[in-house]
């Protein structure tokens, strides 16, 4: 019990498999996830925020390349400084075997409570692949 308490106390509540299990504790807070779209062939990238119903390009499933969408969500959501190394690491996750002429656009999707409904907004963050590694002007330092 003492080991448990000390382990989680000095490790932000997590020292696997010890945990204070904070999952779901932040009920009602704004969340951030990621959705990736296949924008191969697009001439330009529109960096304006949009809704899930109006996403450009074609659907892209992370499962198709063996990537974990929650990893990608955290990768995109928690990155504060988009260094070339960080963009390259994202590219490796979504194109483990090279881009093969394809281009993908990662959206940061945010959900928040507005009264009795959930508002969801998708903001483009970074494009990788044949189009080149391009960071949204909003996230460019």
């Amino acid at each position: 019990m003492v080991v448990y308490v000390v382990s989680v106390a000095v490790n932000l509540g997590e020292f696997w498999p010890f945990s204070i299990y904070p999952m779901f504790s932040q009920a009602g807070n704004t969340w951030h996830r990621v959705v990736i779209r296949d924008v191969s062939g697009a001439d330009t990238i529109d960096w304006q925020p949009t809704t899930l119903d109006d996403l450009p390009g074609d659907p892209f499933g992370a499962r198709s390349v063996g990537a974990d969408p929650i990893d990608l969500a955290n990768f995109v959501g928690k990155t504060r400084e988009w260094t070339p190394q960080r963009i390259g690491a994202l590219e490796l996750q979504v194109f483990p075997d090279g881009h093969g002429g394809r281009s993908l656009l990662a959206f940061r999707v945010s959900g928040s409570l507005l009264g009795d409904s959930v508002a969801v907004v998708a903001t483009p963050v970074v494009a990788v692949g044949a189009v080149g590694n391009i960071l949204s002007p909003e996230f460019t330092p």
């Binding site: 969340w31 996830r33 959705v35 969408p69 990608l72 959900g111 409570l113 969801v120």
Partner: peptide
């Protein structure tokens, strides 16, 4: 909120 969040994860997956 969580159902919407997990729905987005499913779209991502």
């Amino acid at each position: 909120m969580w159902i919407n969040e997990k729905a987005v994860d499913e779209i991502a997956r």
